[in-house]
Design a protein around this nucleic acid. Structure first.
Lengths: 302, 302
DNA sequence: TAAAAATACTCCATAGGTATTTTAT
DNA sequence: ATAAAATACCTATGGAGTATTTTTA
């Protein structure tokens, strides 16, 4: 049925409602001859008469009635499509699939979700927690709209938007609270607890110690929370990003210390495809996340 | 979302399938620039980007994906509409609502249904049995496409198509088989069994006896079958159309006689709105019904 | 005779084509 | 450097308007 248009359906639906060419045309905001022509054309397309013209009164044929019924359904679907579009209309509305690395998600996401949802009620955040490699793959494949991770990512197809820097702090048993803070070299020789393979934070910590591979006496955990609990048990020392401080050291018997001069740190940023049409929106969202992150980090006094 | 056309949906659906403007355009049998323009226009209509253009590879936005999904549903509905139309395509296909008066229906309909269904497999006959007045009302209101009844109907809006004539025969008890056949006047003085009010056949029988109202000694039945059974029980005599003969006198102990010179008879015809676009089809169907009716009547030997 | 739809025609908007430029890998 | 989409421009189709005729109740 090539050549069938929305107009045909709309006009025919109007004719079904009004059972009168003149009034139906008026309802469609066109003239009666225009409607007559369109209906006739529709009948040509269909190949059978849909309307029974009878002087004073017109009537639809049985095929016409059935046609009108289906046409109405189609028009309704179009309406729904319209509604859907309208719901995701305006900037910062609609679904946004955002990935966050595990060493940031638990500390940043709750506030971010709260703030963004409050500011942009139409925004439908769909967060996903995964390690950097996984997030990058999802981003590049179009399964994510944006991701929050440590910079740089050095993917030419991706745009980086820096959010904030965060220092790493030393977590050691409370018994060691009074000992001097080790430097990077000394740290490498201590029993260092690190996240398992795949977490960027593991590599960042190792890099601070000038190590490329893990030392033999290394112990691993699958989350910062686990690491801190292990430190509390006297098993060793670890590094955590300062943002995790408040949450992770609350219920552990550990002491926290900042490093001297060469502060270990990383930059957290938001990343999305350069080609994403959401760029404008994402920059706004990035600004909000930046605000949340900086507020979250500011009680840096420990 | 005014301005949205089927083409937009079709083109966007193709783009979703091919994820490539050039190939999608080819699939739509248009050129790439034409498709680009249409997709861009669609995005303008929608008000948000639906496609993420990325040099080598394009990708749909989340809104684009959702849009495409709904669009696909709409296109499928159009397909179904097309199927429906195709199913009722060609003359003598599709539903046909046909009414038949009760003194014809049981004797004619089975054969008619069988013959028409065999000859026109696409035809979907929807018969309805009702008295003339009811059928006429349904016809004029467009609730029936055609009706088979006694002519004339004298409705200016309706067209009459004569099918065949049928005589009325006398049914009396088998004990009276050797008696002379009464004439119209004599019949009016006998105990005459007639159909109840509303049946045209009742009026036709009365009219034969030159009676306008029912005689006082009249008895009524709701069907010819009932009347014949009553005759068999010796209650009186009755008239039935010859077409009913074979079926109704088979299991009754009655005798049948034809009248002399002024043969009572009626014309059965098919009737439909003059304005009906089915006129061509109905004339063909009428011809078939005529054939069936005449064959049904021909074994007039009694 | 009057109401309603069909027809005739004209005009303008637009879909689609060709040629070319821009863009991103 | 190349593949792909966007842009520019032109043409032709067709949708809608006004004026008029035809139809039928």
């Amino acid at each position: 049925m090539i050549g069938l248009t929305m107009k045909h359906l709309r006009y025919f639906d109007a004719l079904r409602q009004h059972r009168h060419f003149g009034r139906a045309a008026e309802a469609c905001a066109i003239t009666q001859p225009a409607l007559s022509v369109q209906i006739k054309e529709l009948e040509t397309i269909v190949g059978s008469p849909l309307v029974e013209r009878g002087g004073r009164q017109i009537r639809l044929t049985t095929l016409g009635e059935r046609f009108a019924e289906k046409a109405q359904g189609i028009l309704q679907s179009v309406e729904e499509l319209d509604d859907m579009v309208r719901a995701t209309q305006g900037p910062l509305a609609g679904p946004l699939r955002i990935g966050v690395i595990p060493t940031v998600a638990p500390y940043l996401l709750p506030d971010v979700m709260r703030t963004l949802t409050a500011r942009y009620p139409g925004l439908d955040l769909l967060p996903r927690e995964a390690v950097t490699q996984s997030l990058l793959a999802d981003l590049l494949a179009g399964r994510l709209d944006a991701a929050i991770m440590a910079l740089p990512v050095s993917e030419p197809a991706l745009r980086e938007f820096a959010l904030f820097d965060e220092d790493f702090v030393l977590v050691r048993s409370s018994a060691e609270a009074d000992q001097p803070v080790p430097n990077a070299k000394a740290l490498g020789e201590m029993r260092l607890l690190l996240l398992e393979e795949g977490h960027c934070f593991r590599d960042q910590a190792l890099s601070f110690c000038n190590l490329t591979s893990a030392p033999r006496n290394l112990m691993e955990g699958s989350s910062l929370s686990t690491l801190v609990q292990m430190v509390g048990a006297g098993i060793g020392v670890t590094l955590i990003p300062e943002m995790a401080l408040a949450l992770e050291t609350r219920s552990a018997d550990v002491s926290v210390a900042r490093f001297e001069a060469p502060q270990p740190a990383r930059t957290i940023g938001m990343v999305w495809r350069k080609s994403s049409p959401l760029t404008q929106d994402l920059m706004q969202i990035g600004a909000v996340v930046r605000g949340v992150g900086q507020a979250r980090r500011s009680p840096r006094a420990t």
